[in-house]
């Protein structure tokens, strides 16, 4: 399975980077959201800056990753490569994990500029320990959203109303991750000391990790069944 994962990951990554539109459009979409929000609300009041920063990062991250996830299997769907993968001696878990790994990379490429631009627009300057903690929590959220999104993308791959069905399923199910991400993020960025907010942060991180474990386990276990037959 590890060898298959490696081969599939490499090919999926190649297919993604061969299509610049697929790589660039979620990043540009995230940037557009940030610019629109910044110009609409202007510079927030000093006491609202940390919360506005967290809100902007998660807003751009969630919406941009959703657009990437909804069409996660498009390269395999185009020439029915997915059918041949299903007919080949390939572990469904390896297909799922390879796609998830590529989604995580995409999420990271959206996250880094989102944090930098949001911090600039909101006038937030985080010390390194808070910045690493916040980035880590965002990546944990992306991992959970990725597991959920890849599972749903496979599930809705052949649905006629895929573009409607995917967000209808994705947004309600991603609520625990978003709640944990935004609340935990706000606690990390808040002016109180990290030690004072530690209990709250660890509580939300636990929620996020639990949701991650559930979505990842369900994804690995269900993926084979979801793509088994038409």
């Amino acid at each position: 399975m590890l060898t298959q994962f490696r081969i599939l990951f490499r090919q999926t990554l190649r297919a993604e980077f061969a299509d610049r539109e697929r790589v660039l459009s979620p990043i540009l979409f995230a940037m557009v959201i940030l610019v629109v929000v910044a110009f609409t609300f202007g510079e927030p009041a000093p006491e609202l800056r940390p919360a506005a920063f967290v809100a902007q990062v998660f807003l751009s991250l969630v919406l941009a990753t959703q657009t990437a996830l909804a069409r996660a299997f498009d390269p395999e769907h185009q020439d029915r490569a997915f059918d041949l993968l299903r007919a080949a001696p390939v572990s469904p878990g390896a297909i799922f994990l390879a796609k998830l790994a590529v989604v995580l990379m995409q999420g990271a490429t959206i996250l880094v500029p989102s944090i930098a631009i949001s911090a600039l627009f909101c006038g937030v300057s985080l010390p390194p320990d808070r910045l690493f903690a916040f980035t880590g929590l965002c990546l944990l959220t992306v991992a959970g959203l990725g597991s959920l999104g890849v599972t749903l993308a496979a599930m809705t791959l052949k649905a006629h109303a895929r573009t409607v069905l995917f967000p209808l399923l994705y947004f309600p199910l991603s609520t625990p991750l978003l709640l944990a991400g935004t609340q935990g993020g706000a606690a990390i960025v808040a002016p109180e000391t990290m030690v004072a907010a530690a209990t709250m942060i660890s509580g939300w991180v636990t929620v996020s990790m639990s949701a991650n474990v559930i979505f990842l386990t369900l994804g690995i276990l269900l993926f084979g069944e979801l793509v088994k037959s038409d």
Partner: peptide, 16 residues
């Protein structure tokens, strides 16, 4: 032990 080829597609990544 088998390889399947559908009628109207070839199962390739078209951007590669």
């Amino acid at each position: 032990r088998f390889e399947y080829l559908p009628a109207e597609a070839n199962g390739f990544h078209l951007k590669l």
